[in-house]
């Protein structure tokens, strides 16, 4: 393993370096994916462009939107006072990433760009209708996260583009998010299945106005379970309906069998976890309403 190491002091210089080296370069954020992949011989970039000295990418801003800088760490998400209420799902996703050491350095941007179908923060962001902004030599472009994710390890990002921010709309009243993960152990675990949900109820806290369900580790990318969302919207979310949503979500996914789990078991987990994660959203909304 050998590469040239760069530490640009600004966003523009980072992008300039990426433009110069193209696909021979990789950005380095926390390094918790990149370095492992280099060590295992899966990647061999000639140039590593560290983002450690690039200022301004590690902020969490809440105005008309929530904007996360790409370098916001999982630890920062976990600890942010903004996310303890309606955005709780984000905290739940972030706080099960690896162990403490990994969360102290691993970033949201890395989680997204690495594009593992098992990424834990990505489904929550999908459920929040997040969009990502990339900056390249030609300027900025923003696209929905769902579109950004193409396949395992693959995104719409061009090699010379830096992911700068992730943005999602503020949640209105009667909304909540939640996240659940299944794995073989309780920490340092790649999700066998993870699910995230967002739900908004009507003013009477009766019917579901809007639902989002995102599934991890059951398809080539993190996946929205649209049929399951539709079955909820406009309806009273009774337990029976949540179970139906679970069944629909299980049908929507295309899990593989590997050393971590069989596809059949992954499907069963989706069927179980989706109603649970939805029920959690409902509990939260009702708690907030009280």
């Amino acid at each position: 393993m050998s590469f040239e190491y760069h530490e640009p002091p600004s966003v523009s210089e980072a992008v300039a370096l990426a433009a110069r080296f193209g696909s021979e370069a990789r950005f380095l954020a926390g390094g918790t994916d990149l370095i492992v992949q280099i060590n295992r011989g899966k990647l061999a970039p000639r140039h590593v462009v560290s983002l450690h000295r690039v200022p301004g990418l590690d902020t969490i801003a809440v105005d008309g939107h929530v904007t996360l800088g790409a370098l916001v760490t999982h630890r920062a998400l976990e600890r942010s006072p903004h996310f303890q209420g309606r955005y709780r799902g984000l905290v739940e996703g972030a706080q099960v990433v690896g162990g403490h050491q990994v969360r102290n350095v691993g970033t949201v941007g890395g989680n997204i760009v690495n594009a593992s179908p098992a990424a834990d923060v990505v489904p929550v962001l999908l459920a929040l209708d997040a969009a990502v902004t990339c900056l390249g030599p030609e300027g900025e472009r923003t696209l929905p996260l769902e579109e950004f994710l193409v396949g395992p390890g693959q995104t719409q990002r061009r090699p010379e583009e830096l992911l700068t921010t992730v943005r999602f709309p503020l949640l209105g009243p009667n909304s909540a998010t939640a996240f659940l993960k299944a794995g073989r152990r309780k920490a340092m675990e790649i999700s066998v299945v993870c699910v995230a949900a967002r739900m908004t109820l009507d003013a009477g806290l009766e019917r579901c106005r809007e639902a989002r369900i995102a599934l991890g580790a059951v398809a080539p990318t993190t996946l929205r379970a649209r049929a399951a969302e539709h079955v909820l919207e406009g309806e009273v979310p009774r337990a029976e309906l949540l179970r139906r949503a679970g069944a629909l979500a299980a049908r929507a996914c295309q899990p593989i069998s590997d050393v971590r789990a069989s596809s059949q078991f992954r499907r069963l987990l989706v069927e179980t976890l989706v109603p649970r994660v939805l029920a959690r959203c409902l509990e939260r909304i009702r708690e907030e309403g009280r």
Partner: peptide, 23 residues
Amino acid sequence: IVYENGRVVNPNLTDYKMPTTLD
């Protein structure tokens, strides 16, 4: 340690799962 046809398919500490303190 999982073997398939004579090959270990989880030869790393990502997929060889020792318990953590939380377990």
